[in-house]
Amino acid sequence: MKERRKIRVLIAKPGLDGHDRGAKVVARALRDAGMEVIYSGLRQTPEMIVETAIQEDVDVIGLSILSGAHLPLFSRLGELTREQGLDRVLIVAGGIIPDEDMPAVREMGIRAVFGPGSSTTDIVDFVLSNAPQDKG
């Protein structure tokens, strides 16, 4: 009965854009690295994402967005995670997020952004070394 702890990750696409190639490639890479990946799919509101993160008790939330709607959506998501006390959850994002938005995005609680050209190895490594270690 030793060491069955697994990193649980929620991969979600907030907003309306349907480009899920990146989200799916990353989901699979994390799975192949031995994690349990909950894929909740397209068109997720911040409310849906946070509630899912609670019920699934995930360690990591990965958000993918390419439509340019990231600022209002991440801002709401940041509010909700603080409200719900999900401070320990590691939140990362991928997609098209302009450099000048980075300070604001970090302020909203997104710890890292993996833009086009990122390698899944880097993403996996980042998650492995930054996922919270404090449970079970």
Binding site: D32, G34, V37, Y39, S40, T52
Partner: peptide
């Protein structure tokens, strides 16, 4: 690992 997609 596992990919859990039922919530979709």
């Amino acid at each position: 690992g596992a990919l859990l997609g039922d919530r979709i």
